[in-house]
């Protein structure tokens, strides 16, 4: 564990908590893409199958459990409890356009052709593009609530910090995982235009609006 990975995990945890609290406290999931949340729940499910078979540390197991519980709780709140506030008209990105190619790629490009490894690879590839329905929804509505933009900033920062962690681990341990690194770079690049808008607008107290 290094400080970059720890900060990355905390940023990820912060993002998940911000979103869950936003939906719970405002009793509304307006402006939030339910499809992205379903994809994130799928990412954690396929990545943490070894939760009970491969104990690494209390921290590792606790975080995996928290991520799983919070992501399913968010999906539950969005599609059941506060369903009336779910903006399905703007959340129209076709998930199958992501899941099918990612599933195929996981079969073709992986470290080891075993079920657990292919599912892990699938979760890595899927996580890289899971935010697309959310970014697509914001581009359709042309704006995002400030709290949602904080959520996205924390979520985007998490994988950016992981990239720094991978550079650090490469130089200190000689360790690298090309699949995770390439997918992590794609994932972070997808946030770039949002990061620009966040820093130039939200941090100046303005509403996050996309140029129409």
């Amino acid at each position: 564990m290094n400080i970059f990975r720890l900060l990355g995990d905390l940023s990820h945890l912060l993002a998940i908590i911000i979103l869950l609290l936003k939906i719970w406290r405002t009793r509304s999931c307006a402006g939030v893409s339910g499809k992205s949340q379903i994809l994130f729940a799928l990412v954690f499910t396929t990545r943490y199958l070894d939760l009970f078979t491969n104990f690494i540390s209390m921290y590792n197991s606790a975080m995996k459990l928290i991520y799983l519980v919070c992501s399913y709780a968010t999906v539950f709140l969005m599609y059941f409890k506060f369903k009336a506030t779910y903006d399905s008209n703007h959340d129209t990105f076709r998930m199958e356009f992501l899941v099918v190619p990612v599933g195929g790629l996981a079969f073709l490009v992986n470290h080891d052709f075993t079920p657990l490894e292919i599912l892990w690879t699938f979760s890595i590839y899927l996580e890289a593009v899971a935010i697309l329905p959310q970014l697509f929804m914001i581009s359709k509505t042309g704006e995002a609530e400030t709290i949602t933009s904080h959520y996205l900033f924390a979520l985007g920062s998490y994988r950016a910090l992981y990239i720094v962690n991978w550079v650090f681990r490469f130089y200190t341990e000689g360790f690298f995982d090309l699949i995770a690194i390439v997918a992590g770079c794609v994932q972070t690049i997808l946030y770039c235009d949002f990061f620009y808008l966040y820093i130039t607008k939200v941090l100046k107290g303005k509403q996050l609006t996309l140029p129409a």
Partner: peptide, 10 residues
Amino acid sequence: VSDDDSKDEL
């Protein structure tokens, strides 16, 4: 190449 070590990341 990633040995089992890569699975210690979240």
